[in-house]
Amino acid sequence: MKHEASASTRLKALVVARLMMGDIDSWEHYLSEIETTSRIQNRRTARSVMSQISFSYKKTSQNVLKFIEENFVGIGLEELAQLSASILPGVGLSLRLSEFEATHFGLAPSVKRRFPAHSHLRISLWGMQFEFPEMHFLNDIEAGSIELNQVSALLKPYAAVVGNPKSQQIEVAHLVSRQKLLCRALVSASFSLLEAYLSGLFFIAANESRLGNAATNEDFRGFARSKESAPLKTRLDRVLREASGGHASVDDEPIRGYIDTGKRYRDAIHHTSPFERKDVEAGGRLIALYELDPVIAFTCVEHSLFTVSLLERLIWQDELETDVMQRSRVLLNLLPQPFEAPSPTTP
């Protein structure tokens, strides 16, 4: 039977928990509270110095116990207090989930279900967060979509301008440049999201022998280990067929259109060249680069989010949403429907 934690340990655990819940606003504040807890010898003195620590002892204890129950397994206040030794003021803590669990304590299954197994757990003034590649590309898509909508709206009035268009050339040129930049960024982010997502699935399959909540066979694990850098179409098709039991593939729309057409614009951005390639005529990539517009960009984003959402539903086969699934659904609703027609180009 575990002995009861000391007053100093209990209060230190409360401070660490408040940091993990995002309730501490500065590292100076955190460090001051941690140092104060080390001077506490018993519960009586603990309560006597509460004025030095700006939170309610009883209320915070209840919140922390709930926080522990919802997020971790097999730990108490002592284990939480010990975590303070690994949190560097001004920096925080960042570890891969597997490393965090091996070094400190386990995360609740419901928490690990929401985030990819290759995520990093971060503790900072923003609280306890989970970082993984898909998160960054989803953030890129969200920020880019919002700004592209704003820029396109600013360009609308110029489409109806009559007379001498050169009188407003400077204003239009600046907005069109921003619009083109955002279109390129969204196309890139849409493919980066899918690439990162597939790589994560292969990594988990190779290391944990599962695809979502289903066990994988050796054939698929071998594919995951040896074909992680195969062409996107090959990898996506294999995962779709595996996850759906052979009922879905890259030949299904809109996935086929995204891979066949969207790739043309991705290659135009990342492999820009006037030379002929086996899949494009001379100058073809330049034409694709020049014709890129909001309709094309938002279509690539929509199809990428659709593909990721479809795979998430297939591999988990339940109603619980992962963070990637939830974010993808929200972003799909953020896209303009129907997509706006292209705005005027720079003279």
Rank of each mutant, 00 (worst) to 15 (best):
I204S: 10
S229G: 02
G222T: 08
R277W: 03
Y57H: 06
E319D: 08
L155G: 02
R43V: 01
R122E: 15
T216A: 11
R43D: 15
S110T: 06
V162I: 03
H3S: 10
Y290C: 06
A268T: 07
E312T: 01
S244G: 01
V308W: 02
E281T: 05
E195L: 12
F191S: 02
F137R: 13
R178E: 04
A189P: 10
K278M: 13
S56N: 12
L182S: 04
F67M: 01
R327H: 07
A248Q: 00
H118M: 13
T103N: 15
S309N: 06
S192N: 14
P254A: 03
D252G: 07
R122P: 01
P344C: 02
E218H: 10
S86M: 11
H247R: 13
F137S: 14
A297E: 13
T272R: 07
E134A: 13
M21W: 02
R178Y: 04
S26P: 10
N217P: 00
F72N: 01
E101S: 14
S84N: 08
G200N: 14
R327M: 13
I24P: 05
L292V: 04
S119T: 03
E147W: 11
I287P: 00
D260F: 06
T299G: 06
S48T: 05
D267M: 06
E319P: 01
H247F: 08
